[in-house]
Simulated scan of single mutants.
Amino acid sequence: MKIITLVENKSISEAFKNEHGLSLYIETETHKLLFDVGASSLFAENANKLGVDLSQVDALVISHGHYDHGGGLKKFLEINDQAVIYINGKAFENHFSKRANGEAYIGLDQELYANPRFVFLEDDFVIDDELCIFANVQGERCRSTANADLLMEKDGQRMVDDFCHEQNLIIREKNQLVLVAGCAHRGIVNILDHMALNYDLLPTVVIGGFHLYNRSRKKPEATALIEEIGNELKKTAAIYYTGHCTGDEPYQMLKTMLGDQVNYLATGSQVNI
């Protein structure tokens, strides 16, 4: 399995532009898939530089309804006419972020909603023997406090987002079980608990952001929470690749705690599993 980071907040070199967003190209024995498409068309620009032919992608999974993960959807639809796009049914609802000067819209482009290539999911969904999507993660352990600044709109009222629009991907290949999460807004610890309780599965590799940095307030999560998460991750046998919304300081703390068990994914990087 090959995983190439097309978009992330940082880059491995000046050859690749970066942005606040996430897009991963994943090539397995039977699939060429994308997980998220970043905030703009940048994922496509970097794909060209990295030799990734996006027209051959057969499946796209959108982790949740925020622009930094689905902002490149229009561009993807222009360059790929075959991929099935798996997205939660609530992802196109209105989402906002609290900012110093008010509330900003951070949702998806509503004009794309009617595209017939979207497969709108409400719950867990098995694509095939290799790929499975799950949602509706419960549990309140080690939850990010930065979620309090992220809002959803329901019946015309804005309220704290419950992230029912968030979904995660499981990839099975040979002796590897890979969990891919976008921002883990429901909490990476709760997501791992959900896999163990509902599927009796423990991943060998975990990829994605942990949402330990409040971008609006430019503030990382409290040290105690990061250490609590680090201690939970240390109990597992998984290797972690993270970045995007994890934040620099939280990542460095996790790196100190977990050593080689955790690594950073930057734009242009490739991981072979």
Rank of each mutant, 00 (worst) to 15 (best):
R117H: 12
M152K: 15
E221M: 11
Q56F: 09
V126C: 01
E227R: 14
K218Q: 14
I229H: 04
Q252C: 04
K32R: 15
G72N: 12
K218G: 05
I170V: 12
E249F: 10
Q176P: 15
P203H: 06
F16Y: 13
K49M: 07
Q167I: 14
I229F: 01
T256V: 15
A148P: 02
I171H: 05
Q167L: 15
I191Q: 03
V126K: 14
E140P: 01
L33Q: 10
E140M: 13
E8F: 00
E166L: 07
F92K: 03
H165T: 06
K74G: 03
L121Y: 01
H69Y: 10
S41Q: 10
H31C: 08
G139F: 03
V52L: 03
Y240Q: 01
A100D: 07
E111C: 08
T256A: 15
F43A: 05
H165S: 07
L121V: 00
L265G: 05
E227T: 07
S144W: 12
L22D: 03
G107T: 01
D149Y: 09
M152A: 10
I191L: 03
R158C: 06
C142E: 09
T256P: 03
A222I: 14
D123N: 14
V84P: 00
K255T: 06
F210Y: 15
L202D: 08
I229K: 11
Y105V: 05
E93M: 10
D162C: 07
S216D: 03
G21R: 04
L108M: 07
V262N: 02
V178F: 05
H31W: 10
T28H: 00
D193L: 12
I127V: 14
E153M: 13
N94R: 04
I79F: 10
L73H: 06
N136G: 01
T28C: 00
S269K: 07
G72Y: 08
F163N: 01
L201G: 06
N198E: 14
Y105E: 10
P116H: 06
E78N: 07
A184P: 06
H31M: 08
R172P: 01
D248Q: 13
A196R: 09
I239S: 02
H64S: 00
D129K: 15
G38K: 02
A146I: 01
E130D: 08
F125L: 05
D155C: 05
F120D: 09
A15P: 02
V271P: 00
N198Y: 13
N48T: 00
C164K: 11
N18I: 04
D123S: 13
M257Q: 04
D193R: 11
G21E: 02
S97Y: 14
Y241C: 04
Q82F: 15
H244Q: 08
C245R: 14
D248T: 14
Q56I: 13
G230S: 00
N46W: 07
H244E: 06
N263A: 09
G21W: 01
S97V: 15
L212E: 10
G259M: 00
V119I: 13
N101I: 11
Y240D: 01
N88E: 11
K255I: 04
A184V: 09
E45M: 07
H244W: 11
A135M: 12
A59P: 00
M1V: 14
K255G: 03
L54P: 08
N231Y: 15
E122C: 01
D128P: 00
